[in-house]
């Protein structure tokens, strides 16, 4: 049986060219993408799991001698595929600005303070049910030079592999109710508002740790094989 990943769902992604996001103008390909069949080269993929992370990689608040400033948060969720199957034992790499909106990257010139107790780099691996969890501080919004008075909404970057070369995903998680959403050309590059909303995490009191940290839930959906038929019926 030929395995084929669904293509129609790719419409959830932004187009390559989104002129309001100025950096796309000279970097987006002008020729249409060429559709190719899914061969072994696309259906296989690098396998990186628990051996790649160290204890503590999932707690960005404990990577230095002291504790970082900012609002401590827990971010958790499940990595699923489009068919609702968990994506187990897959590497999730995360990075973010500190609570003041400053990255430790050498090219970040925003005049907000670096925090000597915060790097903003984390790695986690999903469990058998596709669940991941990490502790960090809520990142700050920061200005950028896309247009006059441009600010990015607070976000955490995510990088995921999934089971094949074509399930690879790099994205950003946002926080509910951010007043900057309406002004952000990166967030708004996603054509479908419902798809956009899938990048907004949900505040969750059950994830919130008493006397310790607020909890946010962010589920991630990677591409699924268009298996025919599925082994198990769906619940819906």
């Amino acid at each position: 049986m030929a395995v084929r990943y669904d293509d129609a769902s790719l419409a959830a992604h932004p187009p390559s060219l989104a002129p309001d996001y100025a950096s796309t103008r000279r970097r987006a390909p002008s020729q249409p993408l060429i559709i190719i069949p899914h061969t072994l080269s696309e259906l296989t993929g690098p396998v990186y799991g628990h051996e790649t992370v160290r204890p503590g990689d999932d707690d960005l608040t404990r990577q230095h001698a002291g504790e970082p400033l900012g609002e401590r948060i827990i971010v958790t969720g499940r990595v699923l595929d489009e068919d609702g199957r968990p994506v187990p034992h897959t590497l999730v790499e995360v990075w973010q600005a500190n609570a003041a909106g400053r990255y430790i990257h050498v090219r970040d010139q925003h005049p907000a303070p670096l925090d000597p107790n915060f790097s903003g780099a984390g790695r986690v691996v999903t469990d058998a049910e596709g669940r991941y969890r990490f502790t960090t501080v809520k990142p700050g919004a920061y200005p950028w030079r896309n247009h006059p008075n441009a600010w990015r909404p607070a976000h955490i970057h995510f990088s995921l592999f999934g089971p094949s070369f074509l399930t690879r995903l790099v994205t950003q998680m946002y926080f509910p109710g951010d007043p900057l959403f309406a002004y952000d050309p990166i967030f708004n590059s996603i054509p479908d508002p419902r798809a956009r909303d899938r990048l907004v995490s949900r505040f969750d009191m059950d994830t919130t740790a008493p006397e310790w940290a607020l909890g946010y839930v962010f589920d991630i959906v990677l591409r699924g094989r268009d298996a025919t038929p599925t082994e198990e019926p769906h619940d819906d």
């Binding site: 994205t171 990677l222 769906h234």
Partner: peptide, 10 residues
């Protein structure tokens, strides 16, 4: 298998 999600994470 969970209920089919609404769609891909963009």
């Amino acid at each position: 298998t969970d209920p089919r999600p609404d769609g891909l994470t963009p």
